[in-house]
């Protein structure tokens, strides 16, 4: 298969007595945006580190561009761009110098790098910060610079570990827009995230990870259709009424989840369900109707929420 960029079979990573990644299989194809969705500690970052060849594989098989990370790490890294979970920009260097030196690490010549810097800074909307130091940049700017840095060698595969964690909503949307452009122009992206909206926005296909294992795989739409009815009713109750209401609601919806602060009812028709609740004499303090999301998929698969 020529268009498979990353192939994993039984991929496993163990640290002493902790199994971070537990025998997972996946294929990532040319031109797609592939997501790893899961809570912190699910094994996403460990998987990324094995793909980027900075973490040795404990067991199983992994190829990147058909190459073996153990023996051909250098050739693999030459063709990838990595945006790590925590920014590791060089605070001693300016914005453009950060890009320049990564070009040099890839053994590009000055003549190759300089036009590329101009282009990338424009892409990252940092052209006016070219000679600024990194320290005073906002979180969103730093992230965009890190992404620009990952693109300096025109990688065949771009790996983004939690690209928008810690950013404010505005900065996230700006970043998503940039990633969307990359995708549109044919880049292959691997994205890890514990935000369902991010996965829905960016990923063509994704796997849901939990405790080192892959628990589901598909496109965001497929996963939602497969694991969660179309709509969700979110109900809030007074503390005294809650237990009583939970008993009364039994069987009113396809599935229900009782969370600490609210009760979720999964249903294909929220209006029907609301009428049924009324008939049973259940009167919540607050009702919210929404579409199912990947968060609901995750809750269904693991019994836990993505973000605690």
């Amino acid at each position: 298969m020529t268009d498979t960029l990353v192939e994993a079979r039984g991929l496993t990573k163990r640290f002493d007595d902790l199994t971070a990644v537990d025998g997972i299989d996946f294929d990532i194809h040319q031109g797609e945006a592939f997501g790893f969705l899961g809570p912190n500690g699910a094994g996403k970052t460990s998987t990324m580190k094995m793909i980027t060849t900075v973490s040795p594989i404990t067991e199983g098989k992994l190829t990147v561009f058909g190459l073996d990370p153990t023996t051909q790490g250098r050739s693999i890294r030459q063709r990838i761009g990595v945006v790590p979970q925590e920014d590791n920009l060089d605070l001693e260097l300016t914005v453009s110098e950060n890009l320049y030196i990564y070009g040099r690490y890839h053994d590009m010549s000055r003549a190759e790098i300089n036009p590329r810097i101009t282009e990338l800074l424009e892409f990252a909307q940092l052209s006016d910060r070219r000679d600024s130091t990194v320290e005073p940049l906002s979180g969103g700017m730093k992230r965009r610079l890190t992404i620009a840095r990952a693109l300096i060698n025109d990688p065949d595969l771009i790996i983004l570990d939690e690209p928008t964690t810690g950013l404010d909503p505005q900065a996230r949307h700006l970043l998503w827009d940039r990633l969307y452009r990359l995708k549109r122009d044919g880049a292959t992206l691997i994205i890890t995230t514990h935000y369902m909206d991010e996965a829905e926005q960016l990923c063509d296909r994704l796997v849901v990870m939990d405790q080192g294992k892959i628990v589901a795989e598909g496109s965001p739409r497929e996963l939602i259709e497969q694991y969660a009815p179309r709509e969700v009713l979110e109900l809030r109750f007074d503390d005294e009424q809650r237990d009583d209401a939970v008993i009364k609601m039994d069987g009113v919806a396809a599935r229900s989840e009782v969370l600490a602060d609210r009760v979720l009812l999964y249903t294909d028709d929220a209006d029907d369900t609301q009428r049924a609740l009324h008939d049973r004499g259940v009167h919540p303090e607050q009702v919210l109707v929404r579409r199912s999301t990947l968060e609901d998929v995750f809750l269904r698969l693991t019994g836990r929420r993505l973000i605690d």
């Binding site: 260097l93 030196i101 122009d185």
Partner: peptide
Amino acid sequence: MSVSAPSRISGIGRLTPFRAQRIWEHNYIA
């Protein structure tokens, strides 16, 4: 904004066996 993603360029980067001097280059800039 009408900015598109960076253009694809070919033949970028080379694999040379020894590149410790890149660290010098980094430190020199810093």
